[in-house]
Amino acid sequence: TTFEIRVGDLRITLHNADEEEIRWAEEALRRGIHADEILRTLEERRR
């Protein structure tokens, strides 16, 4: 599944994310964390 998060002009697309990952990514985007860093962190958490 694919889920797109939008916060203002910012956007990130997550693939195969669970609800916790989606909530975490949305909050991180709101705090101004760059999408590349969010994706990198999620990848590390999945390992």
Rank of each mutant, 00 (worst) to 15 (best):
R11D: 03
I5N: 01
W24G: 01
H15Q: 05
V7Y: 12
E37S: 08
A25D: 00
H15C: 05
I12Y: 13
E44D: 09
F3H: 15
N16L: 05
H15M: 09
I12H: 01
R45T: 06
R23L: 10
R6T: 14
G32E: 03
I22A: 14
I22K: 05
E37K: 09
E27V: 10
I38A: 02
E27F: 11
E43V: 11
G32C: 07
A25W: 04
L29A: 05
I33D: 07
R23D: 03
D9Y: 07
T13H: 06
I22G: 03
R11T: 15
T13C: 05
D36T: 10
E43P: 03
E20L: 11
E4D: 05
T41P: 00
A25Y: 02
I22L: 06
L10T: 11
N16Y: 05
L42P: 00
T1M: 11
G8W: 02
R30N: 05
A35K: 06
T2H: 15
E26S: 13
H34M: 12
A17K: 02
A17N: 02
I38F: 05
R11V: 15
I5W: 01
L29D: 01
H34S: 13
L29Y: 04
V7S: 03
E4G: 00
R23H: 08
I38M: 06
E44L: 15
D18V: 11
E20S: 13
N16R: 05
E26Y: 15
R31G: 07
E44R: 14
A25P: 00
A17L: 06
T13G: 02
E26K: 14
E20D: 10
I33S: 06
W24E: 02
R47N: 12
L39R: 05
G32K: 04
R45K: 07
W24L: 06
R23N: 07
G8A: 03
H34L: 12
T13P: 03
A17H: 02
R31M: 14
E26L: 15
D36M: 11
H15E: 07
A25G: 02
R45S: 07
V7M: 04
E19A: 11
E26G: 14
G32T: 01
R45I: 10
T13Q: 04
I5Q: 02
R30P: 00
G32L: 05
A17F: 04
I33R: 09
D9Q: 06
E27L: 14
D36V: 09
I12P: 00
E20W: 13
D18T: 14
E20K: 10
R40G: 05
E20Q: 11
L39P: 01
E26I: 15
R46L: 04
L29E: 01
I5T: 02
E4R: 00
E37L: 10
I12F: 07
R23Y: 07
R30Y: 13
T1R: 12
R23V: 08
E44C: 15
I5S: 01
T41Y: 12
I22M: 06
T2Q: 11
R6P: 03
I38W: 01
D9M: 08
A35I: 06
E43S: 14
R30H: 07
R47Q: 11
H15T: 12
L29P: 00
E4I: 06
V7Q: 03
A35F: 05
L39W: 08
E20I: 08
E20R: 08
R46T: 03
E26R: 14
R6A: 09
D9R: 04
A28M: 11
G8R: 02
H15A: 05
V7K: 01
E37D: 10
H15Y: 15
D9N: 11
R47C: 08
R6V: 15
R40E: 10
G32Y: 04
E27N: 13
L39G: 03
T2Y: 15
R11G: 07
T41N: 07
F3I: 15
R11A: 11
I12N: 01
R31T: 08
E26A: 14
E27S: 14
L10R: 09
E19R: 08
R11E: 06
D36C: 15
I5Y: 01
R6M: 13
A35V: 12
H34R: 09
D36R: 07
L39Q: 06
W24A: 02
H34A: 09
R30F: 11
L10H: 11
V7D: 04
L10Y: 12
E44I: 14
T1S: 10
R40Y: 09
T13A: 02
G32P: 00
G32N: 06
R45F: 10
L29N: 02
G8L: 03
T1D: 15
V7F: 12
E4P: 11
E43I: 11
A28Y: 07
R6C: 12
H34Q: 12
L29H: 02
E20T: 10
I5P: 05
A28N: 06
L39N: 04
R30W: 12
R47I: 13
E26W: 15
A25V: 12
V7T: 02
R6K: 13
E37P: 01
E27R: 13
I5K: 01
E20V: 11
E26V: 15
L42F: 08
